[in-house]
Design a protein around this nucleic acid. Structure first.
Lengths: 219, 219
DNA sequence: CTCCTTTTGTTGAAAATTCAACATACATTT
DNA sequence: AAATGTATGTTGAATTTTCAACAAAAGGAG
């Protein structure tokens, strides 16, 4: 576990936790680490919602597949970020989403009941962890509002531009990389890939943006 | 404040708080009660994100108005439910949404910093309140997933049917009332009101549902 | 380098949504 | 009861998206 301390320190779940305490905690929480190859499923829709996941390396996507097989990408998860915590904290029966590795990734999984319910050792960290989870969930709600702002737009063009301006803001620069290829971006914006391609082409020829692969610049 | 105890007991923020402690707490938290007439603004977009709101009576809507004046309804808030807590807990500068009274309503407003940061009296309730907030935020994330499931559908018909099946599930019955009129439902589903009317008409003539005003039945 | 796979761009036809405008129904007030 | 305002339904034209299919470009494996 020692080699993961670097990453875990950056994870908001362990905010204000002293490094020397972290290792002990991981044992107490029954944290386990698993590796996943690209495209492999980390959490499957319908499975028990007990785990909080932390991405130690690599990246992942949270998505939903509907009845007709259409994929909707809900969010992208980077190193140090958490996933599945809302479902685990809400203590619902099963997860409504699928989490997939985007590249070879290492994941720490913690049974959330070990966080929420004080252990016999009464190790005193639970209060801080619960506070950190609360902060994380509040922040996550903000990202949901951003996503809703995007998909509430009626045209592919407006959805795309709203998404890109969010990304530019996040990067503190008009020049940035997005974590999605074209198909994934379409699945995130909830539009057709072909229509998205057309729209990116138009915006390029209008001189509104520059786009090459995952690199974008708002002009 | 005494007359509000009945409602407050049902509010998840005060879960596990003994009734005799509740009154004292409200003072400590600096809770204030305000009344709003129908259509009046409770929280304005851009204002300071410091308040957790609790609906004591009436109902309200959380919405966003975009650059072009299009309204998007994010959620409907009923008696005993909270609003604005995510923004206050995330301690961001300003609220990205507007909260409006749907009918004459009474609202309790609590400065969230009084909840999050322990007071000098060290009154010991904070831990429970933070736990309750965490639970609430986790549950709210689930409702956002539901909303995303709706708006990720590509047609008005599918959006409507997905919404109605969620409502039926929530009501534990195929017969239920929705909290929106037609324009509001359109703004919640992120579609055109006229197209929505057409679709409801089609579904009725197909015998899939019965709809009259806010009453719906899935057949 | 070549083959093979994946990704991205392009196109045209079909389907659906948006928009604006009007008609009808309903509710409230005077 | 009449008048007013609001909510809902309806319609047709314009716009946009979706869908399916193919072409071109890029990337990786051997």
């Amino acid at each position: 576990m020692k080699k993961y301390l670097e990453v875990l320190r950056e994870c908001t779940l362990f905010n204000m936790i002293k490094e020397e305490d972290l290792l002990k905690m991981l044992g107490c929480l029954g944290a386990k680490v698993e590796s996943f190859d690209k495209k492999f499923t980390i959490i499957n829709e319908g499975s028990q919602a007990k785990y909080v996941g932390i991405l130690l390396s690599g990246s992942a996507q949270v998505s939903m597949i509907d009845y007709y097989g259409n994929r909707s990408i809900i969010s992208h998860v980077e190193r140090t970020e958490m996933f599945g915590e809302a479902f685990a904290c809400a203590e619902i029966a099963s997860v409504p989403v699928t989490v997939t590795a985007n590249e070879p990734s290492e994941v720490m999984l913690i049974d959330c009941s070990h966080i929420l319910h004080t252990c016999k050792n009464n190790c005193g960290f639970h209060q801080q962890l619960i506070y950190n989870l609360m902060k994380d969930l509040a922040t996550k709600t903000l990202t949901f509002h951003q996503k809703l702002e995007i998909v509430s737009k009626r045209t592919t063009r407006d959805k795309l531009l709203t998404y890109l301006s969010h990304q530019a803001k996040k990067a503190h620069s008009a020049s940035f990389e997005i974590p999605f290829d074209r198909q994934e971006l379409a699945d995130y914006l909830e539009v057709e890939r072909s229509g998205l391609s057309v729209e990116i082409g138009k915006l390029k020829s209008e001189g509104v943006l520059f786009a090459d692969k995952k690199h974008f610049e708002l002009l």
